[in-house]
Simulated assay, not measured.
Amino acid sequence: MATMNISLPDQMKAWVEAQTEDGKYANSSDLIRDLIRREQIKQEKIAALNEKLEEGFASGISDKSLDQIMSEILGKTQG
């Protein structure tokens, strides 16, 4: 495993140390790794959402009314 040194303002350092004192994390490295994993997952979800939005925009504007669309959806779920 590679090592990385980071500099934190005193307030952030104190927060990291407080998170490790309650026993949830063995040390500050565990906490930082968990935060990075969470951020990676969050970014993957955002990228997937953006991809779906782009697909939606690329599909164009429907000429159907909202009532027509809802009827189609409800017909599929009830059928």
Rank of each mutant, 00 (worst) to 15 (best):
M1I: 04
M1E: 04
A2W: 10
A2M: 10
A2P: 11
T3Q: 12
T3R: 15
M4W: 09
N5H: 12
N5Y: 04
N5V: 10
I6N: 06
I6L: 12
I6M: 06
I6G: 08
I6Y: 02
S7V: 08
S7W: 12
L8W: 11
L8C: 10
P9S: 08
D10N: 03
Q11Y: 03
M12D: 14
M12P: 04
K13I: 02
K13F: 10
A14E: 05
A14Y: 01
V16A: 14
E17P: 07
E17S: 13
E17K: 09
E17M: 14
A18P: 00
Q19I: 15
Q19R: 15
Q19S: 14
T20R: 11
T20M: 07
T20K: 08
G23W: 14
G23L: 06
G23C: 07
K24G: 06
K24E: 09
Y25M: 02
Y25L: 09
Y25W: 11
A26C: 08
N27V: 03
N27Q: 07
S29V: 08
S29Y: 03
D30E: 06
D30Q: 09
D30L: 02
D30Y: 01
L31T: 05
I32P: 00
R33L: 05
R33I: 05
R33P: 02
D34Y: 04
D34C: 00
D34I: 00
D34K: 01
L35R: 01
I36A: 00
I36T: 07
I36W: 00
I36N: 01
R37A: 01
R37H: 03
R38Y: 10
R38S: 06
E39S: 14
Q40C: 02
Q40R: 08
I41A: 10
Q43T: 13
E44D: 13
E44H: 04
K45G: 03
I46G: 00
A47F: 00
A48K: 13
L49W: 08
E51Y: 07
K52M: 04
L53E: 14
L53T: 11
L53Q: 14
E54R: 07
E55W: 15
G56L: 15
G56T: 08
F57T: 10
F57A: 09
A58C: 07
A58T: 05
A58S: 11
S59H: 04
S59C: 05
G60S: 00
G60N: 05
I61N: 05
I61A: 01
K64E: 09
L66I: 00
L66F: 11
L66A: 10
D67Q: 13
D67G: 12
Q68F: 06
Q68I: 01
I69V: 01
M70S: 06
M70G: 04
E72C: 00
E72I: 01
E72Y: 09
E72H: 06
E72S: 06
I73R: 03
I73P: 03
L74K: 14
L74M: 06
G75H: 12
K76C: 08
K76L: 10
T77F: 13
T77N: 12
Q78M: 13
G79W: 07
G79T: 14
G79A: 12
